[in-house]
Simulated scan of single mutants.
Amino acid sequence: MTEYAEEFEEEEFSGPSKSQIKRDKLALQALAERLALMPRRELERLNLSAATWIAIDETPRIKDQRARGRHWKRIANLLEREDMDAVHALIDDSGTHEREQIAQHHAIERWREQLMNEGDAALADFIAQYPHVERQPLRTLIRAAQRDAERGKPDAPRKLFRLLRETLETLE
């Protein structure tokens, strides 16, 4: 063996590869972008440093795409010094909450379509599941939504959606 090969064999692996470090940095930049675009009231649950808050507050004024990329890198570097467990917990909670909202929206859409298409049969099912709803106003709104849907008007179907949303939200 050559002297160089012997020297190379003797060295031990002492940490992540350059590729792994780069992947970690890119993941942290994506996390920084996601955090910077979250509502401030959610971010206030984190104990972020003043420098991180300043960087996050600067985000809306940066319009250029290349500058935004550098800005995400800056926030990512600042985040490395923060409590990452709290940051990941916030992101997980946010994702869970978002999925719940989407699921609720889809449930409301399904009820609206079912009520508009099936009429009184679906209304009976809805009343059985949500007995606190007043039957007559809901029935009137369903009829109006059916008429407006035939005419291509969105007003009554939107009102029906709002009523269904309010009904489901009162149960939570």
Results as ranks from 00 to 15, higher is better:
residue 54 I to C: 09
residue 161 F to N: 01
residue 111 W to A: 00
residue 37 L to I: 06
residue 106 H to G: 01
residue 21 I to T: 07
residue 35 L to R: 00
residue 51 A to D: 07
residue 36 A to I: 10
residue 94 S to G: 07
residue 130 Y to P: 04
residue 74 R to N: 10
residue 61 R to C: 14
residue 98 E to H: 12
residue 82 E to T: 09
residue 6 E to D: 13
residue 118 E to D: 10
residue 29 Q to R: 10
residue 20 Q to A: 12
residue 79 L to D: 02
residue 33 E to V: 04
residue 148 D to A: 07
residue 128 A to I: 05
residue 40 R to S: 04
residue 123 L to R: 04
residue 82 E to K: 14
residue 86 A to G: 05
residue 149 A to T: 08
residue 163 L to R: 11
residue 73 K to E: 13
residue 125 D to P: 02
residue 141 L to H: 13
residue 148 D to S: 06
residue 70 R to I: 14
residue 133 V to D: 02
residue 137 P to Q: 04
residue 45 R to T: 08
residue 21 I to L: 14
residue 22 K to M: 12
residue 115 L to E: 12
residue 47 N to G: 03
residue 6 E to T: 09
residue 82 E to V: 07
residue 160 L to S: 05
residue 77 N to K: 15
residue 87 V to T: 09
residue 160 L to T: 02
residue 27 A to D: 12
residue 56 I to G: 00
residue 75 I to F: 07
residue 22 K to W: 14
residue 52 T to W: 01
residue 69 G to M: 15
residue 122 A to T: 05
residue 93 D to P: 06
residue 97 H to T: 08
residue 21 I to N: 08
residue 15 G to K: 11
residue 62 I to T: 10
residue 33 E to L: 05
residue 164 L to A: 12
residue 93 D to C: 06
residue 110 R to E: 08
residue 31 L to F: 06
residue 13 F to E: 07
residue 56 I to Q: 01
residue 99 R to S: 10
residue 27 A to P: 00
residue 133 V to Q: 05
